[in-house]
């Protein structure tokens, strides 16, 4: 019998409230209110330039290292406001991991990619870190492929392998939330498939937010979907529609949603 996924009982994990991200004073994305449910996969879809990535980056405050970027409003994780000083930022980012469009392994060995961040966060002894690294590599289905060359440079891996390594690096830190910014957009279909399989294993264990251009992907893997649209022309809120993926795709409530889904499909 299949285990009932945690998302069957939606429990808000992250709460967005009056969030606005602006670059040099120009607002890029504004979200009045949106919940992100614990243990579920939430997809963010929408046309290019609608601020999906900025929205995602505001959750783990990656926005802070972008010059000229300002974030207002609130992002609460388990009811606690995210952000704060450098120290809180460090623990926030440990709890909220992120995977980027292009795989970005650290320019060190495969093993060090996972173990060095653990060490920096003061995790256990060497053996414990090694064990965690192996576990994370197994979760993303990379262990068999790299077990015999853990000390080779991470940059010698293929694109798909690199992306899974990045995912493993993130998972080894045992985050609560995993943010994925179009994680498959630079990969070929085969590699995409493997990464998607790895993502599927996250459901229930981690709260996952994935920004994607690929509607079929959103449909395949997401429990909830938020449709975003560019601000302007009278549009004050970037979020067009939010609901369970099935509901959003099958019976869209907004004209923009059906247009976007229909257009992208047709």
């Amino acid at each position: 019998m299949q285990r009932i996924p945690a998302c069957c009982v939606p429990e808000t994990h992250i709460e967005i409230d009056g969030l606005e991200v602006s670059y040099a004073g120009v607002p890029a994305v504004r979200v009045g209110s949106m919940p992100i449910y614990r243990g579920c996969v939430t997809a963010i879809v929408g046309p290019s330039g609608c601020g999906k990535s900025s929205f995602l980056a505001s959750i783990n405050r990656m926005t802070e290292s972008v010059p000229g970027c300002r974030v207002s409003g609130s992002v609460r994780i388990d009811g606690v406001e995210s952000g704060g000083d450098r120290r809180r930022l460090r623990s926030l980012r440990r709890r909220v991991g992120m995977i980027f469009q292009r795989p970005n392994p650290l320019p060190v060995s495969i093993a060090a990619n996972i173990e060095a961040p653990l060490k920096d966060h003061g995790v256990g002894q060497k053996a414990e870190r090694r064990r965690r690294a192996e576990q994370a590599l197994r979760t993303v289905g990379l262990w068999e492929e790299v077990a015999d060359r853990l000390h080779k440079p991470a940059l010698s891996l293929s694109g798909g392998q690199q992306q899974r390594l990045c995912l493993a690096r993130c998972l080894a830190l045992e985050p609560e939330v995993v943010l994925l910014d179009e994680p498959c957009s630079s990969l070929d279909p085969m590699a995409t498939d493997v990464v998607e399989q790895a993502l599927a294993r996250l459901r229930g264990r981690y709260t996952t937010v994935i920004v994607t251009h690929n509607l079929a992907q959103a449909r395949r893997i997401a429990d909830f979907t938020g449709v975003f649209w560019q601000l302007g022309r009278g549009r004050e809120d970037s979020l067009v529609e939010f609901g369970s993926t099935r509901r959003v795709f099958e019976t869209p409530a907004e004209e923009l949603t059906s247009m976007y889904i229909g257009g992208a499909q047709g």
């Binding site: 010059p67 120290r87 920096d120």
Partner: peptide
């Protein structure tokens, strides 16, 4: 790069 190499007392690598 905007990275301040600061460390707090209880950080392991401090």
């Amino acid at each position: 790069h905007d990275l301040a190499l600061t460390a707090k007392a209880r950080d392991p690598a401090s």
